[in-house]
């Protein structure tokens, strides 16, 4: 119930927006080739549901593989950066620079270099999602209070023990905020990669629909991709809650 109350204002605004859109299309008889009404979009989605579902699964698969690898990669890199000041100083500027490269330019190059398979898409997803996680992890590790560190050092803890028992747990909240930011990019990045060249996926579907002047289907696919991102965010929220130690204790007790 609380989540309904929480979402209520957004739902009202969304409904108002859709109603105005629907009304505008009905009153002005703008061509549905240019601006399909929300009802046209829903209708397109229904008619094409099997095709769209197939492409959605392809997109979801790539996004999940890329995103999972990205999380692992982010942990590995953040740990390396944490333990080596030299690497941190050397790599941070390069990582920041990597974020200034527009994916629009990069996606076709990836396809050129690595073909139409899984690899270029996964690489693109990693490239886009990895940075916010590395940044949030490293700043999470650094947020460990000095006195906590001192406490462990006085007990004879090694650097690794300090990392595992204190720095890593204290990065938890920041990690999850980085993860959320990355997750919002994951689906979009996959679609971008598919747009540049793929056999299946929402990106290639959107491209084909556009070339056939089917604005309604373009919007159907956009709608589906937005839903995918929301689902991903909800799953992450659930994981965050369920991996909380207190939650686990209270539910196992």
């Amino acid at each position: 119930m609380t989540s309904v109350r929480y979402l209520f204002p957004s739902l009202v605004l969304l409904a108002a927006f859709l109603a105005i859109w629907e009304g505008y299309v009905a009153l002005t008889d703008v061509s549905s080739l240019v601006l399909p009404a929300p009802s046209d979009v829903l209708n397109g989605l229904w008619v094409e549901r099997y095709v769209i579902a197939r492409h959605t699964l392809a997109t979801l698969g790539v996004a999940l593989v890329g995103f999972s690898l990205s999380v692992i990669f982010a942990f590995v890199v953040s740990i390396l950066l944490h333990f080596s000041g030299w690497l941190r100083r050397g790599m941070m500027p390069l990582l920041v620079a990597s974020q200034t490269v527009p994916i629009v330019a990069l996606a076709p190059l990836m396809v050129l270099w690595f073909g139409f398979g899984l690899l270029p898409k996964v690489l693109l997803v990693i490239l886009v999602t990895f940075f916010p996680m590395v940044v949030s992890l490293t700043s999470g590790y650094a947020s460990l209070p000095r006195a906590f560190r001192d406490q462990l050092v006085s007990m004879g803890a090694t650097r690794w023990v300090i990392f595992r028992r204190a720095a890593l747990p204290s990065a938890r909240a920041q990690f999850f905020s980085g993860l959320r930011i990355s997750a919002t990019y994951a689906i979009v990045a996959t679609i971008f990669a598919e747009y540049a060249g793929a056999r299946r996926g929402l990106g290639i579907y959107i491209l084909a629909a556009k070339n056939n002047f089917r604005a309604d289907l373009v919007l159907s696919a956009v709608f589906v991709s937005a839903c995918l991102t929301l689902v991903l965010l909800t799953v992450i929220k659930g994981i965050k809650r369920m991996t909380r130690r207190r939650y686990r204790r209270e539910n196992n007790a």
């Binding site: 006195a147 406490q151 006085s154 204290s170 938890r172």
Partner: peptide
Amino acid sequence: IAYQPQQDTLFPW
């Protein structure tokens, strides 16, 4: 030697 710092260092997690 065991040391108890001036700040509270019970780990909240």
